[in-house]
């Protein structure tokens, strides 16, 4: 498998469970080393014979968020848990706390929650805290494995919007592995489709939807709402830069077409 991650954008890795998504993600931060070939992150290259020191160096730049990350919270207070990462990377306490607070803000965690025990947060808050814990290390690249798993609809939208903000406002490179196309469709620029450990597609959103066979073979369902947007776009000849425009965007485009087509 070979591909390059686009910097400063959100890339989606789509595939059914068992397609190799989780294994792939663990190669991005040196948890797993390739049998052959290499993984290059900036100036660091990881291959089959790489040292633990090289892997550690990569982990400073790549933050990996596992599925159900709230399971890894363990400190007495949320703030301490957020500081865990930076402290491990050798940052001094004052800076670690500052980084932790910044990360908490990014994830919309109220200051009052920071002094609480992580076990006393609601499930939604725990999810955000766990992701903030990874963000606190200030990685350039953030890799997330099914970040919206078992969240309710509002929770999913909020989280994805925040991840998008990380790209747009903080210039981070974000990679989301998921089986839900509707989560990433409003935001992702690049799409990678995995099937049984093979890469069956890599490209921009528009080309993805021309390859629905690849998606179906990979077990990814194209939800009706996306097909509706597609149909509308096709009929009215409107083009969007994301495969699934926000309702306001779609409405605005339809409005424009409507105005143009209105008999004078």
């Amino acid at each position: 498998m070979s591909f390059q991650l686009r910097e400063g954008a959100m890339t989606a890795v789509l595939g059914a469970p068992g397609s190799g998504k989780s294994t792939l993600l663990q190669h991005f931060n040196g948890l797993l080393l390739p049998d052959s070939g290499n993984v290059r992150v900036g100036e660091i290259t990881l291959d089959a014979g790489s040292s633990q020191a090289a892997c550690r160096a990569v982990r400073r730049r790549v933050g990996l968020v596992f599925q159900y990350p709230e399971q890894q919270l363990f400190e007495e207070t949320v703030l301490q848990d957020l500081c865990f990462g930076p402290l491990n990377h050798g940052v001094d306490e004052a800076e670690a706390e500052a980084a932790a607070r910044r990360a908490a803000q990014w994830m919309g965690l109220d200051d009052s929650l920071l002094a609480r025990s992580p076990f006393r947060l609601s499930s939604g808050q725990q999810r955000r805290a766990a992701i903030a814990a990874v963000l606190a290390c200030d990685p350039d690249i953030i890799v997330l494995d099914e970040p919206t798993a078992s969240l309710d609809a509002a929770g999913r939208c909020e989280l994805m919007a925040r991840l998008d903000a990380m790209c747009r406002e903080a210039g981070k490179t974000v990679l989301v592995a998921t089986h839900r196309l509707e989560d990433v469709a409003p935001y992702a620029e690049d799409y990678v489709v995995l099937r049984e450990g093979q890469l069956t597609f890599h490209g921009a959103g528009h080309t993805l939807l021309q390859h629905t066979a690849a998606l179906e073979a990979a077990g990814v369902i194209v939800p009706g709402a996306i097909r509706l947007a597609l149909g509308v776009a096709e009929l009215t000849g409107i083009e969007f830069d994301r495969i699934w425009p926000q309702p306001s965007e779609l409405a605005a485009a339809i409005h424009q077409a409507y105005e143009r087509g209105r008999p004078t």
Partner: peptide
């Protein structure tokens, strides 16, 4: 194992 990997990813050494 999963939790260990997650903590290692956060720099645990």
């Amino acid at each position: 194992q999963r939790i260990w990997k997650a903590q290692v990813s956060r720099g645990l050494d």
